[in-house]
Design a protein around this nucleic acid. Structure first.
Lengths: 228, 228
DNA sequence: GGCCGTCTTGGAGCGGCGTTCCAGCCATGC
DNA sequence: GCATGGCTGGAACGCCGCTCCAAGACGGCC
């Protein structure tokens, strides 16, 4: 009993999965998705790769754990007994903001289907759909639509962050993109050209929310009792 | 004039970007996203890596070209002067089926934002929104919602394909997943548990289309003239 | 036909990655 | 105090993307 059970720390600065995941998140946040290597981890934790592999099976597990950690934090903040429609928007925005702050999560999230992080999101959204009065048969499809939309935006944001990494001025970059789009044959790409003009002044977060509202409106339309 | 201009083939079995992309697609289709290496390419094309790098800048460009090729084919098949709502569904299904046949595309598509492949999809969908009568201000948001949803599903399908790669029986795997989900604390994951029962009998393609219809319903609701 | 300059090729080699393996350290139970 | 086994640090392996370069192939010119 003196040692606080079997799993007491055997050494002061002992390694643990938690410490490793924490260090991985720090590296990912500071230097981007490509910078996480076991060599960088050993340097930061002042240890060897063998020690890390004792706690973590491989890089995929490490990335899954780091992703889960970020999503769990975001979902924990997004709780609240609000009205279900508002709760779904809050959860979605929470994930959006988490990915905005940790873009590498956007690239990892789609890679680990059926994992804990995805389940949390799915549960959070699906539960509110029930509260919203969506009939049981449609709930799976509706939750799937919302989650897939969120994952799509997540992936795009991660990709954008990768591109913007070297750029100081996001607006300048978007303007350059818009020009490139605008240059394309207007006859072949009329819509893209039209949208290019709006690229500069648009707000990713607002557009994300507009998409959520669009799907929610569709859900409301489909689950109205007079429907069918 | 005898040599058909500057860029005539200088050798019979000459290398070209087209041949390299074609070989890359064959490898990706046959052995999955992780199997495409320059060494595998050199073996299949019976050449050296230097020769390949003469035609292709790097692996990213090669993957972008391969992805663009698949998407271009899918978009070309999805043309047709149908009613706009139906046209959007056709385009979406075309992309879904293309990714179903070439799962690696689902992983690549979100990685290359603002590229030719994405532009094609965006243009195809955005143009039909115009025809649908969606007001100009909302068109960008609506197209973005549809495209992001498609990208989200694409990523999930790619991830699933990666998991299923070793599995012969998809249904058995899904049942195993469902069981794992069902085992989770019902108090904490009631929705997930409920959905787990439906996992076995659900059809990815139908669910994808249901999501498209959901968003289209939302677009219809938002762009009704009596709105606002 | 012979030569030359350019385009194209094949392969050796470099640095870095994820992962494995193992000799030894050290807190603990006897 | 000493054996035990959880835990550590680092060397080594095979594979990767990519660079570099000597040499081959070819069209144009005399």
């Amino acid at each position: 009993m003196a040692t606080k059970g079997q799993r007491g720390e055997r050494r002061a600065g002992a390694l643990s999965k938690e410490r490793i995941v924490e260090a991985a998140i720090e590296i990912l946040d500071a230097e981007g998705g490509g910078a996480l290597t076991f060599r960088a981890l050993t340097a930061r934790l002042e240890t060897g790769s063998g020690a890390i592999y004792w706690h973590v099976a491989n890089k995929d597990e490490l990335l899954a754990a780091a992703t889960g950690e970020i999503i769990d934090r975001a979902m924990a903040e997004a709780v609240g007994g609000a009205e279900p429609r508002e709760a779904i928007r809050t959860i979605a925005l929470g994930i959006f903001d988490a990915i905005d702050a940790h873009p590498w999560v956007g690239a990892q999230l789609p890679r680990e289907p059926w994992q804990a992080a995805m389940m949390r999101i799915f549960e959070g959204i699906g539960g509110r759909l029930q509260a919203l009065g969506v009939p049981e048969r449609a709930r799976f499809d509706c939750a799937s639509a919302l989650v897939n939309y969120i994952l799509g935006v997540a992936g795009q944001n991660a990709a954008n962050a990768r591109v913007f990494a070297g750029e100081v001025d996001r607006t300048a970059y978007l303007t350059a993109i818009a020009e490139r789009w605008a240059q394309h044959d207007p006859a072949q790409f009329p819509f893209v050209r039209q949208v290019a003009a709006q690229l500069g002044e648009h707000d990713d977060r607002e557009q994300f929310l507009a998409g959520i509202d669009l799907i929610l409106a569709g859900i409301a339309a489909v689950s109205r009792p007079d429907d069918k």
